[in-house]
Structures are given as C-alpha cells and as structure tokens.
Design a protein around this nucleic acid. Structure first.
Length: 222
DNA sequence: TGGTGATCATAC
DNA sequence: GTATGATCACCA
C-alpha cells in the first residue's frame, strides 16, 4: 500500500487503474480492512476504503480529498445496467447569509471542480466482498454540464436565500436537488424565514441526480 | 420500482 | 450540532 498521497494526476490515475476490476475483498485485504456483511450500518464504508486504498491527503476541512491535485473522490454505486443506483451527495446547503452569494464561491462549484468517480458494482444479489471496483474516471464538468448545475443552483438558492426552503423539496432542480442531510428527521439547524429572521429547520444537502451522473459514467465508456 | 425523505457511523 | 463518508427504506 501507499504511504503518501499521489503527487501528480498521472500517479493517481495509475493507482486508480490498479484497483480497477478488483473485488472489494481484494482491495480491503490490501488495506488490512475487514469487509462488513453489508452497508446498512456502514454506509460510508466504501468511500473510506477507497480513501485508504488510494491514500487521500489528511482529512481536511472542506478541502478536496487529494489536496495537492484539487481532486474530490466519490464512489458511485452502479447497477448491472450501468446506471447509478444512488444520487451523489455534494455538500451541505448553506442556510443563512446567502443574499448575494455567488456561484463561483459556492460549495457545489468548488466540490465539483474536479472529481475522481470510482464506480462500484452494486447489485444486491452479489455479496459486498465480491462486488467489483470499476474503472475510475477523473472528470471535470463540461461547459454544458456546468451550466445545468449552475442554473439549478441559482434557482434553488433563490428559495433558500429568501427563507423559502420549506417550500421546496427534492423534486426541484433538473440535475441538482436539495434533500435532508441529517442524523434523523428531528435534527434542526439555523435557517431564515421569509422575513429574514432566524428560525429552525432541517439540515439539507445538495445531491446530483442519477440521470446526471449516468452521463459521466456513459461518456467514459465511449 | 425509483425517487424522495430518512437514516447510519464516526470524529470532534 | 457539523462535517466526513454515503445508502436505506418507504410509498406513490
């Protein structure tokens, strides 16, 4: 295993290529990790396995996983038909002080600047240990992809900034959506109401829809 | 059955 | 509670 993060994108690509087509069990063995029976009580386990297998930089606050390379690592579960099984969490939705917030400065724009996607086979009839790691993809959004995300972000953030977050749900946004992101439905954090006053609301996150991430996976296979 | 809302683990 | 990593599970 590695004892330092990759210093160049080419080096990262080599590490990625090396685990492509390996089983989860094989990668876990190299990392000296035991594979859990399932992900029910270990939802972030694959992500943490990949962090270890590729050696991401030390866990920094709100920074890309590969700090020097400016690359964010995301595992993405993929069904047998090649379509993502789940949406992808991007970052928390800022709920206060949003008037005048610019897209360029947003957490969404920063997180998605450059992403290493690692597809993971996710059929429930295959045991976790035997699922295969796919070919990783170092991706940067195209101009049209960026436009889609930005348009959604601006529309969604307008609701948020004007204290109307409780009026929108996950059906809003073409490729980017807002959904709860919390320990449970009772969790509360500070938001603003329509009068601009602080109030309590559910913590929420930005997620990329599967239709969008499917395109990234597909484009890579061409 | 897939999309939305809810939830799980862990560190601090 | 926030932030990291995400998937579970219900019901239209």
């Amino acid at each position: 295993m590695y004892n330092n993060p990759p210093h160049t994108e080419a080096e990262l690509q080599q590490r990625v290529d090396k685990i492509a087509n390996s089983s989860i069990a094989m990668v876990a063995q190299q990392c000296n990790l035991a594979v859990p029976e399932n992900l029910q009580h270990n939802k972030g386990w694959i992500g943490q396995l990949l962090e270890k297998a590729l050696y991401t930089s030390a866990s920094n606050l709100s920074e890309p996983d590969f700090l020097e390379l400016g690359i964010e690592l995301k595992s993405i579960p993929v069904k047998s038909n090649g379509y993502p099984a789940e949406t992808t969490y991007i970052c928390q939705v800022p709920l206060i002080n949003n008037l005048g917030q610019q897209w360029q400065q947003s957490c969404v724009a920063r997180k998605l600047n450059k992403v290493l996607w690692i597809p993971i086979q996710s059929d429930s009839n295959i045991s976790l240990a035997q699922r295969l790691v796919g070919q990783g993809i170092i991706w940067q959004p195209t101009e049209s992809q960026l436009d889609l995300i930005k348009d959604d972000w601006e529309e969604l953030m307008e609701y948020v900034a004007f204290g109307q977050i409780d009026q929108i749900d996950a059906s809003y946004g073409e490729v980017l959506q807002i959904r709860p992101k919390a320990a449970n439905s009772k969790a509360r954090t500070v938001g603003v109401n329509e009068k601009g006053q602080y109030n309590n609301t559910m913590p929420r996150g930005f997620y990329l829809r599967t239709a969008f991430t499917a395109q990234i996976i597909r484009d890579n296979e061409k």
